[in-house]
Design a binder for these strands. Structure first.
Length: 471
RNA sequence: GCUCCCUUCGUCUAGUGGUUAGGACGUCGGCCUCUCACGCCGGUAACAGGGGUUCGAAUCCCCUAGGGAGCGCCA
């Protein structure tokens, strides 16, 4: 039997990190076992499902690299099939028509709540005849006694007494099928062998198993993965800020960093922290997933992202950096090769957005000096070193505008003036970058280029002169 | 309220009867150093509480507390 898993989101919003992790687990489990991963869009809620959401989900999955082998299948394309199954259940007496009005349902619910009971349908129409021509819903005839046990791959055996389960609606008054029916039919029809989903579905599982049994089908194996909580310990939602995977892309995160972070939320392999997708396909075991919910924490994601920026292929990082430079109105064609910039800056940025920001000086003059840096380094004492540096750098041929030569120039000026490297390099850095932080001074000069370096030194000298004049 | 689930450093986790309770992120300190990072070294910090079982419990059982999910003609 080949393993088949599915990710079955309802298109009522973007792909959030919780869903992405569920999809990742489904994907990894299938890949690990040489099986197939199916994508199914559960759009039976006509009111809330949107095409934009479908696109957002597809975009998120594709960005993360979670390729599916089949689908996307849309449940709205399969209403005929669901209705045939419901009719079959009706014929066999395993389902029945119910015309209880909303008011009656509300009333018994209130009474049950008042009596400290779990609200549920009381089976009023179980043995009544309801005219098929009149408005009605179809309910599943759930077994009244015995128990159904969910044998979960993560949680172990969870028994549910049938008397806790009521007769759920399979078909609405408008004729559309409901979630619990469509899932069961689809999973069976699509040959899904392993259902991996959020643990907010555990309570649905015994109901679905009962429907499956009524249809004479073997249930799949189930694995309910724990939820992801926000920093405040409640279920992750929009009010926790960025939860859409696409927003992480836009904030400059690498997909491999998000994947790595997400997989370690609830799963581990000894002390290993860094995993490539290939590592995961080889090592992932659903039974190693934790039972407890975990909290989404950006610090570790930042660390992983920094790691992947630093250790990833500079050419690829540079390619991903380009759009971020574009957001700053920078055209990389007018300056150093972005690959060189990435190599110089990769250790300094947690995100691609940050990488673009701290690298802008390579492509254009900065607006203002960082006040603290200017105050500390662009003082009258810096005038002489800067003048000497300007002269020496001016004499350096363009062919010699290389790290080694640039480093020698700065070193020589420091020696001649009997100053520490810092007393020379820092004013120069602030003059050229506008801030007190940048790659090594030689690399910094190389990236900025001779023309801009000389221009910016002049600007710094003017700044110092003005400051001197002001007293 | 009822049903189900969960509980190890601040966070993510290792741990399946005998460990100085390990790692990672964060944080703090140091080294490196022309700056900022990176890197390296070191410190800080946890078994929710209470009862059992056992020679011995983070590990097994029970209770309590806390947290989560579900109880829709949503999925």
């Amino acid at each position: 039997m080949t393993v088949r898993t599915r990710f079955a989101p309802s298109p009522t919003g973007f792909l959030h990190v919780g869903g992405a992790r569920t999809a990742l687990f489904c994907y990894l489990f299938a890949r690990r076992h040489g099986g197939q991963f199916v994508l199914r869009i559960e759009d039976t809620d006509l009111e809330r499902s949107t095409a934009e959401s479908v696109n957002a989900i597809l975009e998120g999955m594709s960005w993360l690299g979670l390729d599916y082998d089949e689908g996307p299948f849309y449940q709205t394309d399969r209403f005929e099939r669901y209705n045939a199954v419901i009719d079959e259940l009706l014929d066999k007496g395993l389902a029945y028509r119910c015309d209880c009005p909303k008011e009656r349902l509300d009333r018994i619910r209130d009474m049950q709540m008042a009596a400290k009971l779990k609200p549920r349908y009381d089976g009023h129409c179980r043995s009544r005849h309801v005219d098929p021509e009149q408005p009605h819903v179809v309910r599943f005839r759930n077994p009244v006694d015995g128990a159904v046990v969910v044998d979960d791959m993560i949680r172990g055996r969870i028994p549910f007494a049938n008397e806790e389960l009521d007769d759920l609606i399979l078909r609405r008054t408008d004729g559309s099928p409901t979630y619990n029916l469509t899932v069961v039919v689809d999973d069976a029809d699509m040959g899904i062998t392993h259902v991996i989903r959020g643990d907010d579905h555990v309570n649905n599982t015994p109901r679905q198993m009962n429907i499956l049994a009524a249809l004479g089908k073997e249930p799949p194996r189930y694995a309910h993965v724990p939820m992801i909580l926000g920093p405040d310990g409640t279920r992750l939602s929009k009010r926790h800020g960025a939860v859409s995977v696409i927003s992480y892309r836009d904030q400059g995160y690498l997909p491999e960093a998000l994947i790595n972070y997400l997989v370690r939320l609830g799963w581990s392999h000894g002390d290993q922290e860094v995993f490539s997708l290939d590592d995961l396909i080889e090592l992932f075991d659903i039974t190693d997933v934790n039972k407890a919910a975990s909290t989404f924490n950006t610090d570790k994601l930042d660390w992983l992202n920094q790691h992947y920026i630093q250790h990833g292929d500079p050419k690829r990082i540079a390619r991903l950096l380009s759009p971020q430079l574009g957001h700053l109105d920078i055209d990389p064609a007018g300056g150093p090769d972005p690959v060189d910039v990435v190599q110089a800056q990769a250790a300094r940025a947690k995100t691609l957005v940050e990488l673009a920001e701290i690298s802008a000086f390579c492509y254009r003059d900065f607006d203002d000096y960082d006040p603290a840096a200017a105050k500390k380094h662009l003082r009258p004492v810096a005038r002489q070193p800067l003048e000497r540096l300007r002269a020496e750098l001016d004499m350096l041929a363009l062919d010699d505008w290389r790290d080694e030569e640039l480093h020698r120039v700065v070193e020589r000026v420091a020696e001649e003036l009997e100053l520490n490297m810092g007393k020379v390099a820092q004013p120069l850095r602030v003059a050229v970058v506008g801030r007190a932080a940048s790659p090594g001074i030689d690399v910094t000069l190389r990236l900025v280029g001779k023309e801009a370096v000389l221009r910016r030194i002049d600007r710094a000298l003017a700044y110092i002169a003005k400051r001197e004049a002001a007293g």
